[in-house]
Amino acid sequence: MKIDFPQAVNEAPIELSSHTMTEIQRVMDLFPKGKQKSAILSILHLVQDELGWVSVGAMNRVALILDIQPIEVYEVATFYTMFHLNAVGKNVLEVCRTGPCQLVGSDDLIDYIEEKLEIKVGETTKDGMFTLKTVECLGACGYGPMLMCKYQFYERLTKEKVNEMLDAMREASK
């Protein structure tokens, strides 16, 4: 798999909102003293929740927060597929493409969303509203075809349900 890693590693650490910083402190405090690095995945999720993706500037901030080298953050952020290392649309549609979902029509679902949004997998709509991605098994095999967006599962999808879902997301992201 090609990892599309940003080049500009010298980006200045960005500022995070006070809400995010409070949450970061909370998840760090869950672990014993000296083991705060264990919170790194929680922190990256929180950063992505605020920014929509994880920029190098954000990773550099995480390194300062955890008092570790920036490379220790980069290597983690690039390993775990949930973290978007490039800017994405307001709604990232992550469609499960693995076997059990394929058996019940995930290929057709992907085709339909591509047609409907006029983008290919990996692309973002011109208005910045949607990014379409495919992902491996999300643990919803009995309820496929399905996709995840903002940690929410949309299951047993039909064309009608996709239409309704997209409309609702457009409305909510206005």
Partner: peptide, 19 residues
């Protein structure tokens, strides 16, 4: 953070240590 391999117990422990 989205990695099948972390279901393997020692990979899980690495991940739990923030790696």
């Amino acid at each position: 953070g989205g990695a099948y391999i972390c279901g393997e117990e020692t990979a899980l422990l690495e991940s739990l240590e923030g790696k």
